[in-house]
Design a binder for these strands. Structure first.
Length: 489
RNA sequence: GGCCCGUUGGUCUAGCGGUGAGGACGCCGCCCUCUCAAGGCGGAAAUCACGGGUUCGAAUCCCGUACGGGCUACCA
């Protein structure tokens, strides 16, 4: 069963790549890799109202950013294309024709409004609201005549009356049964001739040789219908695996109102793709009883559907950020710089062309930054004071530190001692500043906090001695002297 | 309303008839310390949704209830 694994991720380009979609893609990808199979990307763009080329581009780039490579699909080619549903009309038409000729379909002349009215009535009466098969027994001649006359009609699947219950074994949820009573003759082709989702998907899955359909839980109830189409087509039914939804803290399915819900947003927040993949992989799947950090390679080697959890998972931003911090700290200094530069640029602290020249200085910052940020977008505010000429002293920092006894003496002494320094490095700065507390008779904390506020404008900053050294003597002294004016006494 | 799915600390999970119910995030405390972090150590936190069975024995198997979610379109 390891042979011929072919799975697909089939997003509708109606928006950016959603977190839930990303997880589905990751599972499909990992499953394909694990079994040496093919991971196929198909774009389900049959809804012309909402599908856009722009969204397709965004989805492809998000997938690539996550590091999910597809073997067949847009920009990858493949022998089972085309991979856009809008380009597959001939396939759908041929399948429709074949089924029609075989008598597996029948035209339905019911008006959409009438159907809706019947549905509402049935529901109000407490019954299931499936189609009543009003057109199923119209005799072929009459039907043909009405079609010839130009009557509007959709095509429905003639579900065999003796089909019985539909049972299938879901690879994550186990056996599942849908009683035949709830299976109505659903529409397979709209009155404009276009195929419906449940039909088009099956045609595609058949023609693309899909062996396992791994998708969101929201498709679970579509499954029996699709099985009926596979059967009508005389095609083997693939294995299904339904993934439970990802929810927000309120239990509702994750959406923009819960904050960031798309891959793109997390990228802009400074979440690393490897961290997002790791987090999502373990949100609903586990390797064992202890693994929390797992790399892509291990994921590809060990992913299995039988360890996918059946229960819906609540997306936990805090855990994702913690995990991102872990990955950030594992980055080499070079890689860290590379990843943070875009954030410095968008924050206006660095011009794109200056990035290369400042590489040395940026590398110096890495050890100071890596252990105190969880997201890359936290970098600019943390380093801001090192990139500007004038620093604005935070009001509460002024109150809490500069207006306290000892601050004035500390700044005077610090300026004095730093001014005498020849070599201006973290260690010489440290040595100099450490002599101040004793000299003026105040606690080290009083001195260091005063200098910190003077040079960074805040009570929280990167390590002090390094910061002073990076600023350089003139700028450091200038800031300390300016801050001195804000002290009392 | 109908159909379907789910239910282990606040959250993600391990567990698959006999465990002190394990790990992770978060939280609390201590240590380290120039702030903030990171790191180390320790702690609180789960009558395994509830009620019935089955069994010598149930978080694990069965039934029911409650709660939550999904689907219910000529959307995907």
């Amino acid at each position: 069963m390891t042979e011929n694994v072919r799975v697909r991720f089939a997003p509708s380009p109606t928006g950016n790549l959603h977190i839930g979609g990303a997880r589905t893609a990751i599972y499909n990808w990992a499953f394909a890799r694990r079994h040496g199979g093919a991971f196929i990307l198909r774009i389900d763009d049959t809804d012309p109202e909402r599908s856009t080329a722009e969204n397709t581009r965004a989805i492809l780039s998000a997938l690539r950013w996550l590091g999910l490579d597809w073997d067949e699909g847009p920009e990858a080619g493949g022998s089972h294309g085309p991979y856009f549903q809008t380009e597959r009309a001939p396939s759908y038409a041929a399948a429709l024709e074949r089924l029609r000729a075989a008598g597996a379909l029948y035209p339905c002349f019911c008006a959409a409004e009438d159907l809706a009215a019947k549905r509402d009535a049935a529901r109000a009466a407490g019954a299931s609201s499936g189609y009543d098969r009003a057109c199923r027994d119209i005799d072929p001649e009459t039907a043909a005549a009405r079609i010839a006359r130009g009557d509007q009609h959709a095509w429905r699947l003639r579900v065999p009356l003796d089909r019985g219950d539909i049972t299938f074994v879901d690879a994550v949820r186990g056996e599942s049964t849908f009683t035949s009573e709830v299976m109505d003759d659903f529409i397979v082709a709209r009155s404009d001739g276009s195929p419906t989702y449940n039909f088009a998907t099956v045609i595609d899955d058949v023609e693309m040789g899909i062996s396992h359909v791994i998708r969101g839980d929201d498709h679970l109830s579509n499954t029996p219908r699709q099985i009926l189409v596979f059967e009508a087509l005389g095609a083997p039914v693939p294995t299904f695996a339904h993934l439970s939804m990802i929810r927000g803290a309120d239990g509702k399915r994750l959406s923009k109102r819960h904050g960031a819900a798309s891959v793109e947003e997390y990228r802009d927040l400074g979440i690393l793709p490897e961290a997002l993949v790791n987090y999502l992989a373990l949100l609903g799947w586990s390797l064992d009883d202890r693994t929390t950090i797992i790399d892509g390679k291990t994921l590809q080697e060990s992913f299995s559907l039988d360890r996918v959890s059946k229960n819906p998972a609540v997306f936990d931003h805090e855990k994702l950020e913690w995990m991102n911090g872990v990955y950030l700290r594992e980055l080499s200094p070079d890689a860290f710089v590379e990843r943070m530069v875009p954030f410095l640029v968008t924050a206006g602290l660095l011009s794109p062309d200056a990035a290369a020249d400042s590489r040395e200085q940026l590398l110096e910052l890495v050890p100071l930054l890596a252990e105190r940020v969880k997201r890359l977008d936290e970098v600019p505010p943390l380093v801001h004071y090192l990139f500007t000429d004038t620093v604005v002293i935070d009001e509460s920092a002024r109150e809490k530190v500069l207006r306290k006894p000892g601050a004035a003496e500390a700044l005077d002494a610090a300026a004095d001692v730093l001014d005498r320094l020849g070599e201006f490095t973290p260690s010489t700065v440290e040595e100099a500043l450490r002599s101040v507390p004793e000299a003026i008779g105040h606690k080290p904390k009083v001195v260091f906090q005063a200098v910190r506020v003077a040079i960074s404008g805040s009570t929280v900053s990167l390590p002090l001695f390094e910061s002073v050294a990076i600023l350089g003597k003139p700028r450091a002294l200038d800031r300390i002297r300016r801050a001195r004016a804000a002290c009392q006494g």
